[in-house]
Amino acid sequence: MSRSSNPYQDDRGNKDRSITREGKGEVDSTRKSGSTRPAPGGPFLAAENMTGGYGAADILHDCTLTVEQGQIAVIVGPNGAGKSTAMKAVFGMLNLRGGHVKLDGEDISELTPQDRVARGMGFVPQTHNVFPSMSVEENLEMGAFIRTDDFKGTMEQVYDLFPILKEKRRQPAGELSGGQRQQVAVGRALMTRPKLLMLDEPTAGVSPIVMDELFDRIIEVARTGISILMVEQNARQALEIADRGYVLVQGANRYTDTGEALLADPEVRRTFLGG
């Protein structure tokens, strides 16, 4: 908590775990949403000309990301290119100085992340994406917290997609393996029945076999009509399943094309895919 200049956040190095507990949230829960405007036409998700960052310095420079309905868009790029930041910007966790985010014919640039969830965005953070002390089933229930209708059907669909979760549904999510945890995280996000699912490095820290398996599941999710926006370290495998690929460098679009075309582009291969 040292990044900020707010004196209330300065604990002067006191880390006495017997009186205080770390892990406070970072999302400002007191912020209120602004209004939305109808913005018909264009792609299903259109995050255009996004410029902004966490503090004074901009991280994103005129960055544009679009996804069509039921398609998979993948953001790749070197470390520190602003991939995760771009995704957070789409989700409203970043103050944008310029640009806008449109979802399903509506300009949602002024909405808070929690209100974007209600509008049909599902977000799976890279880390801390499950409730570790709660059982798998409770994790899914919490995912459906905003729903007032019966979500048993959606839960069955999630169990069909990830059969291992049904087996482990009484086990605390924190005790699962990395790959299983990612499945819980994706399942939790699917419980709201999102129209757009955003995944921040879903295969980080899992074995290659589990990675292939997860990519297969992600394709299955996309086939049900859910659009997917994904940040990936494993650029080659991710671009293979991508309908659209974005190569980001220093917070700006460098190459944008279909996944296939990017894989075939000698320039992209040489600079980003290691030959």
């Binding site: 949230g25 953070p125 499950v130 409730f131 919490m142 917290f145």
Partner: peptide
């Protein structure tokens, strides 16, 4: 359960629609 979720992970609870207040 929403209290336990908030205890586990504030941000994820917020994004699941649980009201912190």
């Amino acid at each position: 359960k929403s209290m336990r979720a908030y205890s586990d992970n504030e941000d994820l609870a917020l994004l699941s629609g649980i009201s912190p207040e």
